[in-house]
Amino acid sequence: MANPLGALMTSSLLFLVVFALPNHVHAEINTSWKHAAPNNVGGADKTVPIHQHTPFTPGQWKQAYATFYEGGSGTFGGACGYEDVVKDGYGLDTAALSTALFNQGQTCGACYEIKCVDSPKGCKPGQPSLFVTATDHCPPNYNLPSDNGGWCNPPREHFDLAKPAYLKMAEYTAGIVPVQYRRVPCKKQGGIRFTITGNPYFYLIKVWNVGGAGDVVGVQVKGEDKLQWTDLKRNWGQKWETNAMLLGETLTFRVKTSDGRSSTSLRVVPNKWQLGQTFEGKNLA
């Protein structure tokens, strides 16, 4: 992270994502795991109804501060596992969250509305709200006080914005500005994406482009042959791991977000899938 006040640089790993989207996607949206698709997903009828649900709604306004850090599409998603935020559909309106907001990676993918306030010299006049996605972590710097350089030290709630996003609402020379913020629904094009990497003995699945609450708190997978419903473990950010045997199975994924809603995408991965491919399921609104 680089700015006039010495914010911290974050980094990212870069992977090649190969897209292979199936022609037909069948899914359902539910409010809890127990109401999701039945275990027997191998029947002839693949049509699953969309259940009624309450959309994610904006939260209460809170106070925080915002700085910015340098980088690009390949470095603005490091701690969340988004290799390229532009290719993954997040654009450059992204933010690295302080530890208090990051919640050990669980908040990755959440969306925020941010307004620059109470800084006549720092806030750009007449600027509308900025809408950003949480894609990275702003680590603490305990060598500096939290009110003078250690902006992301606990328990501060702080947004270290990607520079292109910051400059939409605040002046470069300000370095740090007070803001109001609130959680808002994530509006996405298309469905939830599942990118599967790893090897035949260990699988790493990136879950991305999630609508609604945006932040994933649980992922399950089931095969059509031998694999029963299996909980995936968070590896880091929105990368989820399992050593269950997935290759050769037609896969169904179930994703749960922080508001308790879930989306079950039936047979979105055909049995002849390969590592490195990406598949599309049903999204949450």
Score class of each variant (00 low, 15 high):
R182S: 03
G218F: 07
C186W: 03
V217T: 15
A213R: 08
W208L: 01
N209D: 08
G198C: 11
V179T: 03
V177G: 02
N209S: 10
V216W: 09
P185Y: 11
G223F: 05
R182F: 03
D231E: 12
D259A: 10
L246D: 07
V217M: 09
G191D: 05
L251M: 05
T264C: 05
W208K: 02
G191A: 04
V207C: 03
R183F: 12
V255M: 02
T195W: 15
V210T: 07
L247C: 01
G190D: 09
T197Y: 08
E241T: 08
T264P: 03
P200K: 10
V177K: 02
Q228V: 11
D259N: 15
L251C: 04
Q238C: 13
Y181G: 06
G211W: 08
G218P: 00
Y203K: 11
A213Y: 11
I205A: 04
L232R: 13
S263I: 02
R183M: 05
N243D: 15
Q189N: 13
S265L: 05
N209E: 04
R261V: 02
V210Y: 08
F194Q: 10
N243H: 13
N243F: 07
G260I: 08
T197K: 10
L247V: 07
Q220R: 15
T242D: 09
F253I: 04
D215G: 07
V221T: 07
N235Y: 15
T195D: 12
E241I: 06
L247E: 10
F194M: 14
I192F: 03
L227G: 07
I176E: 07
K187P: 00
L227C: 07
K256V: 14
S258T: 11
F253E: 06
F202I: 02
V216F: 10
V179I: 13
T195L: 12
V177I: 11
V207A: 03
Y201Q: 13
G260T: 08
K226I: 04
K187R: 12
G190I: 05
G198A: 12
R261G: 01
E224W: 00
Q189L: 08
L204Y: 11
G237C: 10
W229K: 12
Y203A: 11
G260D: 10
D225F: 08
K188Q: 14
R183K: 13
L266A: 00
V217I: 15
T250I: 00
F253W: 06
Q189R: 12
I192E: 03
V269Y: 11
K187I: 09
W236N: 08
K188F: 01
E224Q: 05
E224D: 10
W208N: 08
A244G: 04
L266T: 00
V221M: 10
V179K: 02
T250R: 14
G211R: 08
